[in-house]
């Protein structure tokens, strides 16, 4: 039969723009995702970061409103990338992952698509927060708008890995209902909602080893030029490694054929 010889595998293990487009459309259809990742961080910023006091107090070349804006952008990017990664949990529960194994899509390509998606909504989240901030009194030096934004976004990759890890670890269909509060606690511990020096000394020290701390410090660095940059970098690198190893471990177990 001639048909047999004509068949071929798609390029890049099935990783394609077409799949990313369809997946994005699906994510935007989910109201909870949109509210969680795009609306909530901006609302938090408007609630806590735009009073007269924060507008007039200066930090680096900007104001405290700007400082809080960057923290909220980090928070938003983190929620976005975590929920992007955690999508795998829902897809496993629905048997979709199994269905995908009946296509030429390689598991690695699937993960790559999920990471790209997580980073796209992460970027949108940061952009929305910054757009709201720019018209609500946040002041940052011109270079800091770009650098803080990029850092908040790029560092959120840690949480894409975290989301994937949790997505494979937790079989729940409502994985974000568990991860939402977890992220809130981590954000407190990482100094996103209140500076660490408002905590006791011991707690502030422990907090420096939690995963949000490094991202927050790094993202705000172009504005503040404050704190130990290398400690922050080490924090981000270590947690990225830990979450990636965790995600790979669960992922291998998930795709192993019995």
């Amino acid at each position: 039969m001639t048909v047999l010889t004509e068949r071929s595998l798609p390029r890049f293990g099935g990783f394609s723009l077409g799949m990313i487009k369809l997946e994005l459309r699906r994510m935007m259809r989910n109201r909870r995702t949109v509210i969680f990742t795009l609306v909530m961080p901006a609302v938090f910023f408007l609630l806590f970061g735009t009073n007269a006091k924060t507008r007039h107090e200066t930090v680096g070349g900007g104001n405290v409103t700007g400082y809080i804006l960057v923290s909220m952008a980090v928070y938003g990017a983190m929620l976005a990338t975590t929920s992007g990664g955690a999508m795998v949990s829902i897809e496993r529960a629905a048997g979709w992952s199994r269905q995908l194994r009946l296509t030429p899509l390689k598991p690695v390509a699937y993960i790559a698509v999920k990471l790209v998606l997580a980073m796209i909504i992460g970027l949108v989240s940061v952009a929305v927060a910054f757009a709201v901030g720019s018209v609500s009194g946040a002041k940052l030096p011109a270079h800091a708008w770009i650098e803080c934004g990029l850092l908040a976004w790029v560092c959120a990759l840690v949480f894409a890995a975290f989301g994937l890890f949790m997505g494979y670890l937790l079989p729940s269909e409502n994985v974000m209902q568990i991860l939402g509060p977890v992220l809130a606690v981590l954000s407190f511990a990482g100094g996103l909602f209140a500076p660490l020096d408002t905590f006791g000394h011991t707690f502030a020290t422990i907090a420096k080893f939690t995963p949000v701390y490094g991202v927050g410090q790094l993202a705000r660095y172009p504005l503040t030029h404050d704190g130990n940059l290398w400690l922050a970098v080490a924090n981000v690198a270590a947690w990225t490694l830990i979450f990636s190893i965790g995600a790979m471990w669960r992922f291998r177990r998930d795709t192993a054929r019995v």
């Binding site: 699906r26 259809r29 989910n30 829902i90 629905a94 048997g95 979709w96 199994r98 269905q99 009946l102």
Partner: peptide, 12 residues
């Protein structure tokens, strides 16, 4: 294959 159950995403 057409499998017995599952394998579909509700929000597509």
């Amino acid at each position: 294959a057409v499998m017995q159950t599952g394998g579909l995403l509700k929000d597509y």
